[in-house]
Design a protein around this nucleic acid. Structure first.
Lengths: 157, 157
DNA sequence: TATTGTTATACTCTATAACTATA
DNA sequence: TATAGTTATAGAGTATAACAATA
């Protein structure tokens, strides 16, 4: 009896993937990918942090952080500052341009949310948020970290 | 003023990606990927359909369907039957084994949903489903088709 | 010897374009 | 000439493992 009725788990994956895709399209006009936004946000939140700490929180391998940061540094959005006390690691900081981009992302995020949830009124949005938050907490998801950093799984039935 | 407060759009993407990942882990024990499940489900729903029609509904290029089906045929889950009337196209059908795998996916799906929504009671689940369905309909999402088939966008902030 | 970051390499996923066979 | 499907190829994205510099 395979179904056509909406299964909440599938709807969640479907709508979530759609949200991620639309967000990617929006931030693309700023010249960044969603993965870049995640990294920029973490550096904005905790300036001076190391690449290792980023890798751990994102749940990716350190070499991937190198690639991510090479691109962001190349675009002039992030700075790697040598730590004089321990010259093995870098202290990561946003440049002014990086901060500007994050402000723009903030604007786009609001528009994105409005478009995505256009079908719901304010009360319904609040209710949805509360339900999703309960699920996220119960599932042990790290606030602000998208599991998309962690590899393969894509399309789904 | 970049936030830490839960943004519903981000929560949706985050929880959705988590759901997709957990589902992928579960069906992996059956030897299939989520993308395979989507294809199998479409063939189960409309037996005899062509590869072209699959490509269109999934929003992917026909050559990708070839790859997907080669794997499923290799595992003995799908059969390509020549259409005597028009020998250019195939009529796709599940094998008995393919039908068995889909039945097993069905079981796993129920367990998956229970685990994913463990934080919510029955009423809350129904409410969440209704809200998500409203969003999905308004966003023009095709019932049962995961946007993950359509390419790049991954991690996100 | 341990840690931070980098490079070299390989693997997976997916699309593009050229191709075959039918029609 | 048009359509269904296939193959060959290339490009992203990501991980593994070996490596360099510093501690």
């Amino acid at each position: 009896m395979p179904s056509i009725q909406p299964r909440p788990a599938f709807l969640l994956a479907q709508v979530g993937a759609h949200a991620a895709r639309r967000f990617a399209e929006r931030v693309a006009v700023l010249g960044v990918a969603p993965s870049d936004v995640g990294v920029l946000r973490m550096i904005l939140t905790t300036p001076g942090r190391s690449q290792q700490s980023l890798a751990e929180e994102l749940g990716v391998v350190p070499s991937r952080v190198v690639t991510l940061l090479d691109a962001l540094e190349g675009k002039g959005l992030v700075e790697r500052r040598r730590n004089p006390a321990d010259r093995r690691n870098y202290a990561l900081h946003l440049t002014e341009e990086g901060a500007r981009v994050m402000a723009a992302v903030w604007e786009l995020g609001a528009a994105h949310e409005d478009e995505l949830l256009a079908a719901l009124d304010a009360g319904q949005r609040a209710h949805l948020t509360a339900l999703l938050e309960a699920v996220a907490v119960h599932q042990g998801l790290t606030a602000g970290v998208h599991p998309g950093y962690q590899g393969p799984p894509r399309a789904g039935g």
